[in-house]
């Protein structure tokens, strides 16, 4: 039995008023294992966020089932942490309290909370910013807070919906490496959604390529570029290797069949 299984899943958003019904996902079959780093890519409207929302428990499928350890997912849960693209930190709390929030909700003792928060802040390199207000931090640092917060409750899965999408290229690369580091140390299942083919190839152990209208899985690729990076290879060298470029072009051909290359 797989850790996570999408079994014949379809999601249809019903017609409202003048809008026609939209099939966001159709005939999804997908298995995820505990230590994978699964990256989902596809153009806007291909249903990749819907795929993640189903696993997060933010919505339920119109048809089929999403199972974790063989049991259907019925709602959000602490074993499935989430990192959002924006707007998800609480500006009325400082960095420490944001990271601590899940532990407070779960009524963990103050001492245990303190130790865990320190640990998570150290993981993302924000020890010195614990008492800062979150809106005073840069976009990259805010995302680090989001990651630390999701990690604090030690979830089994980390769901990341374009967490790096709003960052500048350099910050983005730094955070890609941070996420890889966290994944390598914690060996949690990570489900990452992205618009960037390069990011997808570099980070994933499994790449799910989706096509829109209706949202379907086009193909699933096994990847090992991130393993090379973790083993010590240079990120630039990996991203400019012939295998990397060949695969990038192949996937671009699927995602952007007409435009040819433009992201």
């Amino acid at each position: 039995m797989s850790f996570i299984a999408y079994e014949d899943v379809s999601v249809v958003f019903p017609a409202t008023g003048k809008k026609e019904a939209v099939t966001a996902l159709e005939d999804i079959h997908l298995q995820l294992e505990p230590t994978e780093l699964v990256v989902v890519i596809g153009r806007s409207g291909c249903g990749k966020t819907t795929l993640l929302n189903l696993l997060a428990g933010f919505m339920s499928p119109s048809k089929g089932r999403v199972l974790m350890d063989g049991l259907p997912i019925v709602g959000p849960g602490v074993e499935r942490g989430a990192v959002f693209q924006k707007n998800a930190l609480m500006p009325w709390f400082n960095v420490r309290k944001n990271v601590e929030l899940g532990l407070i909700f779960q009524k963990i003792s103050a001492e245990a909370r303190k130790a865990r928060v320190e640990e998570c802040l150290a993981w993302v390199g924000l020890e010195e910013f614990a008492n800062h207000r979150v809106y005073e931090l840069s976009g990259g640092m805010q995302q680090r807070v989001g990651i630390a917060r999701a990690l604090a409750g030690d979830p089994r899965i980390l769901l990341m919906d374009e967490p790096l999408g709003a960052l500048d290229a350099l910050t983005r690369e730094t955070l890609q490496e941070l996420v890889l580091d966290i994944w390598n140390k914690s060996h949690k299942l990570i489900l990452l959604i992205t618009h960037s083919i390069e990011e997808a190839l570099f980070m994933g152990t499994k790449l799910v390529v989706m096509t829109p209208r209706p949202g379907r899985i086009h193909k699933v690729y096994p990847l090992d570029f991130c393993q090379k990076f973790i083993a010590g290879d240079d990120a630039r060298a990996i991203k400019s290797s012939p295998e990397f470029i060949a695969l990038r072009e192949e996937i671009m051909g699927v995602i952007h069949p007409k435009e040819g290359g433009a992201l």
Binding site: M90, F105, G153
Partner: peptide, 29 residues
């Protein structure tokens, strides 16, 4: 109050009352 904030709180194990107290009220303040 941004939907993301409420969803984030839900994934962190917040009960309805906790969401109202820690997210909705300060967000609406």
């Amino acid at each position: 109050v941004a939907r993301e904030k409420i969803l984030a709180a839900a994934t962190l194990g917040a009960s309805r009352a906790q969401i109202i107290r820690h997210i909705v009220i300060p967000g609406a303040l």
